Amino acid sequence: MAGLSGVPVIILKEGSERESGKNAQHRNILAAKAVAEAVRTTLGPKGMDKMLIDGSGDATITNDGATILREMDIENPVAKMIVEVAKAQDDEIGDGTTTAVIIAGKLLEKAEALLEQDVHPTVIVQGYKQAAAKAQEVLKKMAIDVSGDQEMLLKIARTSIRGKGTEMALDRLSQISVDAARAVVGFEGKDIEENIKMVHIPGGRIEESSINYGIVLEKERTSPQMPKSIKNARIMLLEGTLELKKLGTDAKITITEAKNLSSFKEGEEKIIKEQVDAIIATGANVVFCEKGIGVFAQGYLANRGILAARRVKREDLKMLALATGAKLVGDVMQLRPEDLGSAALVEERRVGKEKQMIFVEGCEKARAISIILHGVS
Score class of each variant (00 low, 15 high):
A181W: 12
V276N: 05
Y213R: 14
E194A: 01
E207I: 04
T159Y: 15
E218P: 07
K245H: 10
A251M: 12
K265A: 14
K164I: 08
S262D: 15
I201W: 01
K252W: 09
A258C: 03
I272Q: 00
L238E: 02
G267C: 09
D179Y: 12
T241K: 11
I211V: 08
K273D: 09
L173M: 08
E257G: 09
Q275A: 14
D277V: 01
N260I: 07
L237D: 10
G163E: 08
M168L: 12
T222N: 14
S210H: 13
G203R: 07
P202E: 04
S262H: 15
I201E: 09
V185K: 14
I156R: 13
G248R: 10
R221C: 05
P202T: 00
I272A: 00
A258S: 09
G186L: 03
L237G: 04
N195D: 11
R205I: 03
I192C: 07
A251H: 15
P202S: 03
K219Y: 01
I255G: 04
V276P: 07
D191G: 09
S177L: 07
N232M: 08
S223M: 03
K246S: 05
K231Y: 12
L247V: 05
E243P: 01
R182V: 02
S160A: 15
R234N: 15
F187L: 08
K164W: 10
V276G: 02
A169W: 11
K273V: 00
P227R: 03
N232Q: 15
L242S: 02
K270E: 11
P224I: 01
R234G: 05
I271C: 11
E220D: 14
S229H: 07
S177D: 06
L170K: 02
G267H: 09
D179F: 10
R205N: 15
I279Y: 03
A233T: 02
F187Q: 08
E266Y: 14
A183P: 08
S223T: 00
I192P: 09
R172I: 01
K219L: 08
E218K: 01
P227S: 00
V199C: 06
A157I: 00
E167Y: 11
M226D: 06
S210P: 10
T241Y: 01
V216T: 06
I271A: 11
T249A: 14
A278P: 02
G214N: 13
S223E: 12
D250A: 13
G240I: 06
R221K: 10
E194I: 00
K265W: 14
S263E: 15
L173D: 03
I230D: 03
V178F: 05
S229M: 04
S177Y: 07
E269L: 05
R182H: 08
E188H: 06
K270D: 15
I206V: 05
G267L: 10
P224V: 00
V199R: 03
